[in-house]
Structure formats: structure tokens, C-alpha cells
Design a binder for these strands. Structure first.
Length: 491
RNA sequence: GGCGCUGUGGCCGAGUGGCUAGGCAGAGGUCUGCAAAACCUUUUACAGCGGUUCGAAUCCGCUCAGCGCCUCCA
């Protein structure tokens, strides 16, 4: 089941051409560093992508890079964001785009996100965008004024519903539309640009049938979605704030050009908030990932690692707002470490034929918990609920590890499925990984060897000393009845 | 103003009609050289008012509070 923004309901997910799934996610505009809110969207869709792969779908995941066409201001009148930055820094626009695209990739890698199948750039598809604008002109749904081409929303709305995604109607939009003096080229304020004539100072420009210019922002996604996924594809994702006008315009363009709805399931991620307010570039309350990792933002008490932040995000549902605070992040860090400690334990654990007798109540409970992981993900990718279930499984794993639960009580088959489930969900589906510096394992093993020796000799002062040294490296010792192990310090 | 969303225990955050979410924090216990980790038990809930129902955090209405989109933003 997925929540479809278009219908406003949860629907059964049925791909158009199983086992293939086409998924398009609006990527970043590369004119500045990605902030954490952007990251949330990509983290969410990464998990969705991973889960669909896990279910056996052959997913083509397209996530674009917007490197032209995104204007600084409303009303299609501002300066291009990339172009402006290029002018300010006296660089080629492509240098700007490349720099921030690189930074974007670095950040996503720190969060352990899988790369998309295709990552097309808007500037690489100028020809196709011109063709689509021309097609809309031919279909009578666009008009050219003075070297610019605009989409005729009113005309389109005669036979279609402009506003069906964002649940608006154009009468209201016409009334509440802002009166901006510079809009005289457009027939109606709600029309939007498919192609803009380049002013003499505009750096980014391409030849077109209408003179030198550049494409409108909404066009690229329609074009690239159609090119790589077809005229109709399964999933289109993006942040809530793109619903209108961006996604609405995409629908209008595609329907206008090809006569069919481009997307079957629209998925929108909700916003990250800070003190209850949307985190956004323009409000200046957004964190940059590296500020978070370094703890260098005034609102942060200390540094939080990528996996801590990712775990924090996954503990809520993608369609809910999520409020950022130091307290919440600290709690998430402990939770994350607990989960990863569990991963370390289960990885090394193998079935042991002990004298435990099958415990039916326990077996039923574990069966249910295993099944619940899948059903939670099946229910609109509910990672929060999934994590809750994984913690339930973790209790069993830890009980086995400490000898408080016997393997025989579970049975070999169930134990193997428990292990399989925990590892698959944590690593492959949620994409959570162990964070450790280079040489960490060797250092810890060396200290642990000393610890065991001192412990065996009952040299308590020495034991405490080594314990403190380990603690400094973020490790706590676990003394158990019959063995000694370590875990990541959760504090 | 239009459209929409949210309000859960000390904190975060799932949950859409009856069945323990979970994490963090707190309390007690088991274990331990002492601890820690782990496990077990346990305290604190569903903004307010009214309605539907055998039964509501969950459905409906109203009130209050907060937020989002309508302009660039994931």
C-alpha cells in the first residue's frame, strides 16, 4: 500500500509493467549546498528504492540534477539561480553546477544512499525540452510571446483539471493570483514558462525556434521522466513543497503533450522543521550536513554523525513533519548504536544445538515480529514502525547472546529467519551501517586481548584502566557469564 | 482570504474502532570484583467540548493551539 497524493488515499501498489518499476524523484537545484531537509527526501526515497528492490522489482530510479531554468524569483521573471551564482563568483555556470553536484553526491554517500539508475541533467536535455514546448505549441496549449513560450493554463483547463494534484481550482487561483507588473507577457498570471527568452546579460542560453533562451523549470522533469521512464510511469516523488506548482505543471505539460497522465502514484515527503517551523534556505534556519557532523551550527549542542541523523529521520514516517532538536538527536544516537550493536551480535551468531526445549509461545511471538517488519514496510513504507519491530527482535537476539534465551527454544529454522530478517532490514533496506574510523577493529581487538588477560589474572586496577581506555574509543565492555565482548558506547 | 495538515505519556515518535508500538529518560530487579552492557518488571498518554457506537486516541461536529502550500525551496 502506498499513499498516493493524487487520490489522497492509500492504494495497493501495482506497477504498470511488473516486475519493472519506474520511479522519478526531483533532485536538487545545484546552486548551493544541499541542506538537511533536502537530504530527508532523498533518504526517504532511497529506502523506498531499496525496499522495492528487496521485493524483487526491477526498478529504474531516475533522479535529476537541475542545472538550469530555476529562477531566483516568482513569476518567471527572476534571474536563473545557477546563472546568478556564476555571475557573482565569476565562474562558468557549469562550474557552479558541477561543484554543488559533487558536494551533493558526497553528502548522499555519507548517508549511505544508493546511486540512482540514471541521473540526468536538465542542460543535457535542451533539445528534448524544445521539442516538448513545440509539441505543446502545436497542440494549441502554449503560445509564444516575444521569444518566450508560455503554457496556457486556462485553455488546458477547459478539457483537463489543472490543480488536481494540489487540490485547487483555477478560479480561486486566478482570484488570489498576485498582481505583478512584469507579467504582461502572459495571458494569465497562472500561466507558466516553457521557454524564456534570454536577456542580453543572461549567461545560460541556447538557440531555439524562438530565439536564444533557456527552458522553464517544470519542463525538464516532464521531458526526462518521459524519455527514461515512458509517457506513463509508476512513481514520482519529491518534497511536499514541490506539489504546487512544480508537479502540477508537470502533469499539465505531459497531459498536454502526450494526452495521458504521466504518473500513477505521486509520493510526497514532508518537511523537516526547526522549532516547529519549516527548515528552508530562505528562512535561514536550515542546517548544512557538514555543520551537523561537526556540531558547528549555533542551534546544535554537539556533533551528530550521518547515521545518527539518518536513523533519526527513519524513526518518523516520511509523510509527517519531523522536528529537529538536540534532545531528539541524542535519543536517536543511542537508539542507532543499540541497533548497530545488535547487528554486530547477530552477524557473528550462529545456530547452537543447546538443550533448550521448543517454546511455542515464544516462537509465535517471534514469528509475528518477523512478519510485522514486512507488513510495516508494506504499509506505505512505515520505517518508524519497522524500526520498532526490529527492536523487538533485537531483544530476542540479545537474550540469545547473553544466554538468557536458549537456541533450542526458538528452533533452528526460526533462528535463521530471525537473523536473516534483522540483518536484511537494518543493512539492505534501511541502509544503516556501522560507523568506525580506520584501524578501529585492530585497536579494539588489541585492547580486548589485554582486558581478557587482566581479567583472568583478576588484576582489577588494570582491568579498570583498560576499560577506561576502551571507553575513550567509544567502546564499552560486555562481561557475560561465559564470554567477554564489546559494544559501541551508547552515551 | 482559498486549499490542506497537525495536536499522543518527561522528550521524540508509530498507531484509524476493541488486542503491549518503539527509542530516549525515570523506578525496581537479575547478572557482576565493582561497574557497564544485556535481559525482566514497572510509572507517566491520546488538546478541549459534544456526538455516533456495546466499545473511540482512532469516525463525525464545534472550539482552541500550531504549521504548510498558494512566491524560490525537498
Amino acid at each position: 500500500m502506498v499513499y498516493n497524493s493524487l487520490s489522497g488515499k492509500k492504494e495497493v501498489f501495482e506497477p504498470l509493467n511488473p516486475p519493472f518499476v519506474g520511479m522519478y524523484v526531483c533532485g536538487p537545484t545545484v546552486y548551493s549546498d544541499v541542506h538537511l531537509g533536502n537530504v530527508r527526501t532523498f533518504v526517504s526515497f532511497d529506502v523506498i528504492y531499496r525496499y522495492l528492490l528487496h521485493l524483487g522489482y526491477k526498478v529504474r530510479y531516475v533522479r535529476n540534477i537541475t542545472d538550469v531554468g530555476h529562477l531566483e524569483n516568482d513569476a518567471d521573471e527572476g534571474e536563473d539561480k545557477i546563472g546568478k551564482k556564476a555571475r557573482l563568483e565569476n565562474l562558468e555556470p557549469m562550474e557552479i553546477a558541477q561543484r554543488y553536484a559533487n558536494g551533493f553526491h558526497e553528502v548522499l554517500q555519507q548517508f549511505n544512499l544508493l546511486p540512482p539508475s540514471i541521473e540526468p541533467a536538465a542542460t543535457g536535455h535542451i533539445v528534448e525540452q524544445i521539442a516538448m514546448a513545440q509539441k505543446l505549441l502545436d497542440n494549441g496549449l502554449a503560445y509564444e510571446v516575444n521569444g518566450s513560450v508560455y503554457f496556457d493554463v486556462t485553455k488546458y483547463n477547459q478539457n483537463h483539471h489543472y490543480g488536481k494534484l494540489s487540490k485547487r481550482n483555477i478560479e480561486e487561483m486566478m482570484e488570489s493570483g498576485r498582481e505583478l507588473a512584469a507579467q504582461d507577457e502572459k495571458r494569465n498570471p497562472i500561466d507558466f514558462a516553457l521557454w524564456k527568452k534570454a536577456s542580453p546579460v543572461h549567461i545560460m542560453r541556447w538557440p531555439s525556434p524562438w530565439g536564444e533562451g533557456f527552458p522553464g523549470w517544470h519542463l525538464e522533469c516532464s521531458v526526462m521522466g518521459q524519455k527514461y521512464l515512458g509517457e506513463t510511469f509508476d512513481i514520482h516523488g519529491g518534497g511536499m513543497d514541490l506539489k504546487f506548482p512544480h508537479h502540477e505543471c508537470e502533469i499539465a505539460q505531459s497531459v498536454g503533450a502526450y494526452g495521458k497522465d504521466p504518473v500513477r502514484y505521486w509520493l510526497h515527503t514532508n518537511m523537516l522543521t526547526v522549532n516547529g517551523q519549516k527548515m528552508s534556505k530562505s528562512l535561514g534556519n536550515s542546517f548544512l550536513p557538514h555543520e551537523l557532523f561537526a556540531g558547528s551550527h549555533p542551534l546544535l549542542d554537539e556533533a551528530y554523525s550521518p547515521m545518527t541523523v539518518k536513523f533519526f529521520m527513519l524513526q518518523s514516517h516520511y509523510s509527517s513533519t519531523l522536528d529537529f532538536s538536540n534532545e531528539a538527536l541524542k535519543a536517536a544516537r543511542k537508539g542507532y548504536k543499540r541497533m548497530i550493536n545488535g547487528l554486530r551480535v547477530i552477524r557473528k551468531m550462529t545456530w547452537q544445538d543447546d538443550d533448550g526445549q521448543p517454546n511455542e509461545a515464544l516462537q509465535n511471538q517471534v514469528e509475528k515480529q518477523i512478519a510485522a517488519c514486512t507488513s510495516a514496510m508494506n504499509d506505505d513504507f512505515n520505517t518508524a514502525l519497522t524500526i520498532g519491530q526490529l527492536f523487538n527482535l533485537l531483544k530476542k537476539i540479545n537474550s540469545l547472546h547473553s544466554g538468557q534465551l536458549k537456541f533450542g527454544e526458538l528452533g533452528e529454522d526460526l533462528f535463521n529467519r530471525l537473523k536473516q530478517t534483522y540483518m536484511t532490514f537494518v543493512e539492505d533496506i534501511l541502509g544503516l551501517i556501522e560507523e568506525k574510523p580506520a584501524g578501529f577493529d585492530e585497536l579494539v581487538e588489541a585492547l580486548m586481548t589485554l582486558y581478557r588477560e587482566a581479567k583472568h589474572a583478576k588484576d582489577w586496577p588494570r582491568v579498570d584502566e583498560i576499560r577506561a581506555a576502551l571507553k575513550e574509543n567509544g567502546v564499552v565492555v560486555k562481561d557475560m557469564k561465559d564470554k567477554i565482548d564489546w559494544a559501541y558506547d551508547e552515551s
